[in-house]
Amino acid sequence: MRHVHVAELHIDADYGFSDPADTGQLSGLLMPLQYTSPLPASVLLDLRPDFTKACLKGSMTAAVRVTVAALFVPILCFAWRAFGPSR
């Protein structure tokens, strides 16, 4: 996995359940992610709970860098074992 690198991650979302208590529980789980320090400069989380209604709306932008040459050999070995001649 060191050959796959998340270069940028931006999440802007409103979320909520029909029961405000469930929204509060989810908010309690997500807030440490949003306010943990230090987040890398390339990560921006803007999560807003909506206690009035059930909703999930927002946007996500992600940029991922993959070193294809480093993944070529493991993919080739997997393909050979999965689809190659049987022993």
Rank of each mutant, 00 (worst) to 15 (best):
M1R: 10
R2K: 11
R2M: 14
V6F: 06
L9Q: 00
I11S: 03
I11E: 01
D12R: 04
D12Y: 03
D12H: 05
A13L: 09
D14N: 15
D14Q: 11
D14M: 09
Y15V: 02
G16L: 00
P20F: 05
P20M: 04
A21P: 01
D22G: 04
T23W: 00
T23M: 01
G24I: 05
Q25K: 01
L26M: 01
S27V: 08
S27E: 03
L30D: 01
P32T: 02
L33A: 06
L33M: 07
Q34V: 14
Q34G: 02
Y35W: 12
Y35V: 14
Y35I: 15
T36V: 14
S37L: 10
S37A: 11
S37F: 08
P38W: 07
P38G: 10
P38Y: 08
P38Q: 05
L39A: 08
L39K: 10
A41T: 13
A41F: 15
V43R: 00
L44G: 13
L44D: 15
L44W: 06
D46I: 09
L47N: 00
R48K: 13
P49R: 04
D50K: 04
F51E: 04
F51T: 06
T52F: 13
A54G: 13
A54Y: 06
A54F: 04
C55G: 12
L56M: 06
L56V: 05
K57V: 15
S59H: 12
M60S: 13
M60D: 08
T61I: 12
T61D: 13
A62M: 12
A62T: 10
A63R: 06
V64K: 08
V64I: 06
V64D: 01
R65A: 13
V66S: 05
V68C: 09
V68P: 01
A69V: 13
A69K: 13
A69Y: 05
A70S: 09
L71P: 01
F72E: 15
F72L: 15
P74D: 12
P74Q: 13
I75A: 10
L76P: 01
L76W: 15
A79E: 04
A79L: 05
R81Y: 15
R81G: 09
R81I: 15
A82Q: 07
F83H: 05
G84C: 08
P85V: 07
P85E: 11
P85A: 12
S86H: 10
